[in-house]
Computed example of a mutant assay.
Amino acid sequence: MTHILTLVAQLEATSLTDAVVNRVRDAVRGGAPTVLSPGEAVDIPLAAPPDPAPLAAALGGAAIDAIVVKARGRRKALLVADMDSTIIQGETLDELAAFAGIGEKIAAITARAMNGELDFKQALRERVAMLKGLPVDRLERTWERIRMTHGARELVATMRARGAMTALVSGGFSFFTGRVAQALGFDLHRSNVLLDDGAVLTGAVGEPILDRDTKLATLRALAEQRGLKLSASMAVGDGANDLDMLQAAGLGVAFHAKPVVAAAAKARVDHAGLRALLFAQGYPATAFTGVD
């Protein structure tokens, strides 16, 4: 068998029963399934990538993600992850804007930028300029509101335990990436810098701005640094500025992504949490470390 179909259920909404698994197996003409987590995740070996239509029909709109990967080289030695709306819930810039009383205005620009409708650099400068004069202590108060995405800690800890490098690469801000990286154990983080005068934000962001080109360049540089082919890498993100690195990585996963990203990525997770990225690599739940 040359490929693997991994099914991952959103347990809050459904579960992988034998009936569901057998129905999918028949639809894709797969081999005997391997349970990775009872009711949550299974692997189904395939002789070739499945036809999407029968697979979708077999799933019947259930909250179950279907990820197809090559059987060879499933486990990745490099993880490059976006932060906002991927490793953490929500957008930190939008949270900051809420303290300035312009949350809805900035959130609208964020949504358009993440869907690829606006130039990322221009949109970032525009939004940051609107925060001019915001007291710097609002950064700490925003950090107190941040919640990690379910499975983030397991993803980073399990991959690191197996020798992988893990990098948090974000178009967001270093104030937050540094704290998230430390909390979850990422090996390194790269992001933008919000400028302040010691008391309030100046309304400017440090140059050069980390954008989609930088994310792709970072993926390539880290792979080269580790002596890895890009096929040995995994990238995950949700916005248009993640798309280039998702397409270049050995396994690029659009995570609860904007439509333009979900449509173009090699793999997508629309329902489950970040544990799905471990299941897609063939890890059973019993092998996870750092369990949330």
Rank of each mutant, 00 (worst) to 15 (best):
G31K: 11
D137R: 05
N115T: 13
K70A: 10
K105I: 05
Q89C: 04
R74A: 08
I64R: 01
K70D: 10
G103H: 04
T149S: 13
K105V: 13
E140S: 02
A97E: 09
R125T: 03
T158F: 00
A71M: 10
A48F: 02
T110F: 06
G116I: 09
A62V: 02
M83R: 05
H150D: 15
V80S: 14
G73E: 11
G60E: 09
M83K: 05
N115R: 15
A56K: 15
R138V: 04
A58T: 00
K121F: 00
L134A: 03
V156H: 04
Q122R: 14
R141S: 14
S37M: 06
D51N: 12
A129D: 06
A129S: 13
E117W: 04
I44P: 00
L78W: 10
G73I: 07
G151L: 08
A48Y: 02
M114K: 14
R141C: 01
I102T: 10
I109N: 12
G61P: 02
R29E: 14
G73L: 06
M148F: 15
G90M: 12
P38N: 14
E117R: 08
I88R: 14
P54F: 05
G103K: 13
V80W: 15
T110L: 09
V156I: 11
M159D: 07
I146G: 07
A57E: 12
S37I: 01
A111L: 15
D137F: 06
I64C: 01
I87E: 04
A56E: 15
W143Y: 06
E91G: 10
L55I: 03
T158C: 01
G116R: 04
